[in-house]
């Protein structure tokens, strides 16, 4: 019987690699945190983001059981403005109320109707815990009246958990590349 000799440095290396993998895995599944918008890495985004005239940030909080609060923070003359989207992964459709204001996701700055805007969202996550999908329904104001928007957002974490990519399409957009919003994990 051959005797295996395990050196202490080998044990240390295995432990270190395991810890790193566990850490990455934990990070990979953790959408929670502050996400700073990366304008250079993003593409086909709303015009005001693209030109740098509007600053953008996400803050995501999770209860660990699928319920998440996604704060969209954009700059205005009066400082940061927050719109909070509530979602429930694989749960029932949720409803969120946005304060009056513009939807900068639209290049032409379409605004939702009324002083308060109701957004409904259905979020689905498969076996891959580093991604999930959200379907949003809301109504925007246009010059001829209103238009009902169906928006699909795909949230994808990078393997190291430090980059969040949100790929967005909507029913109003014709034959266009999807908007890709890239965020880097911040403090």
């Amino acid at each position: 019987m051959k005797k295996y000799v395990v050196h202490s440095w080998t044990i240390a290396a295995v432990l270190l690699i395991s810890a790193t993998l566990l850490s990455c895995s934990a990070n990979a599944q953790s959408f929670a945190g502050t996400w700073k918008y990366d304008n250079k890495a993003s593409k086909n985004v709303g015009a005001f983001f693209e030109s740098g005239e509007i600053r953008y940030m996400l803050k995501i909080a999770s209860d660990g059981n699928g319920k998440m609060k996604i704060d969209h923070l954009t700059t205005t003359e009066a400082g940061w403005k927050t719109k909070t989207l509530n979602i429930d992964l694989n749960g029932p459709e949720t409803s969120s109320t946005y304060p009056r204001g513009d939807f900068y996701l639209f290049s032409f700055e379409a605004v939702a109707i009324g002083p308060d805007q109701t957004i409904t969202a259905k979020a689905v996550q498969g076996s891959n815990k580093s991604e999930f999908d959200v379907n949003l329904h809301y109504t925007v104001l246009v010059s001829q009246g209103t238009y009902d928007i169906v928006e699909h957002d795909h949230y994808q974490l990078s393997p190291d958990g430090n980059t969040l990519t949100v790929t967005s399409t909507r029913n109003s957009r014709v034959e266009d590349e999807p908007a890709v919003y890239v965020f880097q994990r911040g403090n």
Binding site: S107, F108, V140, V142, Q144, R173, V174, D176, E177
Partner: peptide, 11 residues
């Protein structure tokens, strides 16, 4: 694409 989208939203 922006202009085409506006055209769709304002029929």
């Amino acid at each position: 694409a922006d202009l085409e989208e506006l055209a769709k939203m304002n029929p």
